[in-house]
């Protein structure tokens, strides 16, 4: 059975390409803990802003640091921030969505949904601006800002899917068997929304990477000396006419990671639901 699933999965070109691209960057982040081409703390001013060469495949930055190594270490920040933000969003959003669906139309539902609407009016950037104004910039703030924004995304998705599942007869059968709302949510609702959550999780992961890059670009995210992709782009900006490679490679890293995750999300969706998007809205 799992062999059959694997065969279908491998036959899905979008999924395979997406998975490979994502694995490259996750792999790079993991490898960077053990080995990088050159220590990113090491500055080498005479070698600064050198275009790609054999010694530095992607060139060096304005402090003479190896850009490939910077990208590898920067991947850790991006991935860690985005993953934790997804965990926050799912951890809080899914239970809220399940609860809202159980008490459809109740005060609880109303409060949860209005709260969601409100958070939608605060893009992660605004949340980050407020947190940073009060606590100063850090990668942790980026995580919180992106995580908070993820909560209503998952809450809404879960509620919508759960509402339609609650009208199914098998839920009615479980109620006839004396099961309560919590048990039914755990046994019948949650397992049937997992696929949707996995797909949405991949999408929020990729959006998280974009958001983290934007926040560190404007100085609200990870602070030097921690390398991050957004920071690298900010540093490259004034040098763009003399050292365009400093801007091009970190940007490509973001683009390819996000692309990979998006393709993976699309592929997973097709894998889970071959009857072409019914639940997509």
């Amino acid at each position: 059975m799992s062999a059959a699933v694997l065969r279908v999965a491998l036959g899905n070109r979008t999924l395979v390409i997406g998975l490979l691209l994502s694995l490259v960057f996750v792999g790079a982040a993991l490898v960077s803990f053990a080995w990088v081409p050159q220590d990113v703390g090491l500055m080498n001013i005479p070698e600064r802003m050198k275009p790609p060469s054999a010694a530095h495949p992607l060139g060096t930055d304005h402090f003479g640091r190896d850009i490939l190594s910077m990208i590898m270490v920067g991947a850790r920040t991006s991935i860690a921030v985005a993953v934790v933000a997804v965990v926050i969003g799912m951890g809080l959003g899914v239970p809220l969505g399940l609860a809202a669906a159980v008490r459809r139309g109740s005060l609880l539902d109303e409060v949860i949904m209005r709260g969601n609407d409100l958070v939608f009016a605060f893009p992660s950037l605004l949340i980050a601006i407020m947190i940073t104004a009060v606590f100063g910039p850090s990668a942790l703030n980026a995580i919180i800002a992106i995580g908070i924004f993820n909560i209503p995304v998952f809450a809404r998705l879960t509620r919508g899917a759960a509402l339609s599942l609650w009208t199914r007869d098998y839920v009615m059968a479980a109620r006839v068997a004396g099961k309560g709302a919590v048990r039914i949510s755990a046994e019948h609702i949650l397992p049937n929304v997992t696929n949707l959550l996995i797909v949405q999780g991949t999408i929020q992961f990729s959006l998280g990477i974009l958001a983290e890059a934007a926040l560190s670009y404007v100085g609200l995210g990870a602070q030097p000396p921690i390398p991050s992709w957004g920071r690298m782009l900010a540093d490259s900006q004034t040098m763009i006419s003399i050292a365009p490679h400093m801007a091009i490679f970190p940007g490509m890293a973001i683009l390819l990671t996000v692309l990979g995750l998006n393709l993976m999300g699309d592929g997973l969706r097709d894998l889970f639901d071959p009857r072409i998007r019914r639940d997509r809205r």
């Binding site: 990729s206 490259s236 006419s241 365009p244 801007a247 940007g251 973001i254 683009l255 996000v258 692309l259």
Partner: peptide
């Protein structure tokens, strides 16, 4: 698919270039 994945501020930098 590319447009969704591209960071807008990076795209802006490339356009400036």
């Amino acid at each position: 698919q590319l447009g969704v994945a591209i960071p807008n501020f990076w795209f802006a930098m490339l356009m400036v270039l």
